[in-house]
Design a protein around this nucleic acid. Sequence first.
DNA 1: ACCCTTTCTCAGCTAATTCTCAGGTGCTTC
DNA 2: GAAGCACCTGAGAATTAGCTGAGAAAGGGT
Lengths: 240, 240
Amino acid sequence: MDKILIVDDDQKLLKMLERTLIYEGFDAVTSTDGESALEKVYSERPDVIILDWMLPKLDGIGVLEALRQEQNETPILMLTARDAVQNRVEGLERGADDYLIKPFASTELVARVRALLRRTGKGNQTLLAFADLTMDTATREVRRGDRVFTLTPTEFDLLGVFMRHPQQVLERRQILSQVWGYNFVGDDNVLEVYIGYLRKKMEAEGEPRLIQTVRGVGYVLREEDAPSIPHNGEERKGEE
Amino acid sequence: MDKILIVDDDQKLLKMLERTLIYEGFDAVTSTDGESALEKVYSERPDVIILDWMLPKLDGIGVLEALRQEQNETPILMLTARDAVQNRVEGLERGADDYLIKPFASTELVARVRALLRRTGKGNQTLLAFADLTMDTATREVRRGDRVFTLTPTEFDLLGVFMRHPQQVLERRQILSQVWGYNFVGDDNVLEVYIGYLRKKMEAEGEPRLIQTVRGVGYVLREEDAPSIPHNGEERKGEE
DNA sequence: ACCCTTTCTCAGCTAATTCTCAGGTGCTTC
DNA sequence: GAAGCACCTGAGAATTAGCTGAGAAAGGGT
């Protein structure tokens, strides 16, 4: 059974996460500050560490550095605030394997933990892929075919949502809350703008569109353009 | 999409649950005290209520009683402390539908919510089918046989009404109020127009008609053309 | 302080969608 | 078989959703 160490200073949240991971079949160990977290890593040898970034005594970066300095390569999933973009980038640079923006969905946390475990078996590849699109969540490298390009943090998070739910129509609200935070209040137009940025980068060399608009609902990551039949429009032509 | 009202006074926990439910495809609404919870029930009409037992202003029992007294039968999942056995018993006696002991696993909560929806039959099915017609409310994919086609939001809602009540004659008013809103005022002709749009798309390749007109009443989703009242024994012939 | 990157807002534009209207078509009744 | 309904449908007007360029605001790096 895989052992997960969860480090967070909010007691109630910690308890719930512990329960959730146990319910999902993991062995869960908890810690509420950086120092005791390090101790637990040595004594319990967890397979994955879920690490909150803001911690008493020794913060997330501190724990991460301490571990990596000693060649401890236990996969780390960090938890950061939405506005702490810097932390996310810095964390990944220093060897964190993935991150989640607080507040996050516990079921997504479970999914990420599973993904991390799957990866550790065969090399530390942190790869999301769909069609000819590839995304390395650890190095933040994105490529279409073999053209590499970079995304800003928000663009990256947005594409991440799509890559984790390919073929699925995601509603605008859903996307907004996952990328901009559950309590996002503002113009939905930001989403449109960012979809635009992503498309521009993803189709820079005339590649076919991967992020399709589903009018009145949201967007999907899908290969073919949906055979949209304007209801009063012309006849559908031949076959596909 | 099913709407869930979560009532708990721990802000952080509440946010995480909200995010989790949204991530799992529900529509989540939250409230932090008993009184505002009641208001939300009236204004939002949730399909399930997740109710913490210890609440400011009006506690769980109070909310439950108030609702049941008014014949509001929305399924309720209550959250109680481990040692509050009395509350659990009392809650179930007064009409709560299920309970979870704090701290609980969020994934178990999700499972219970799904179970409640299934049990009470209030849940919205995601895959609807009738004859060779299929409708996936998650991907919004509609297919006739294996021809996939897309519907505009209104067309989709309209077809949804039929798919959820197959073989059942639906009155014009009934359909109008379900798709266009309870207080729809306007020309009934919109309905005819939209039925027309649907038929055009559903029969684009000469498939037999599935949405039948019931003269003077409304429409039915049914395979054969209804041989309405054969009072003068006239045979109907085949196609258009 | 200044520059550069990133995020976000705004307004105009385009096109899909919704809705209205004005004949049609065809059942029903007398 | 004519009149009266009930329903259908094509055309197009009105509305709305989504896209995009421009640029303001925020924030980090030098």
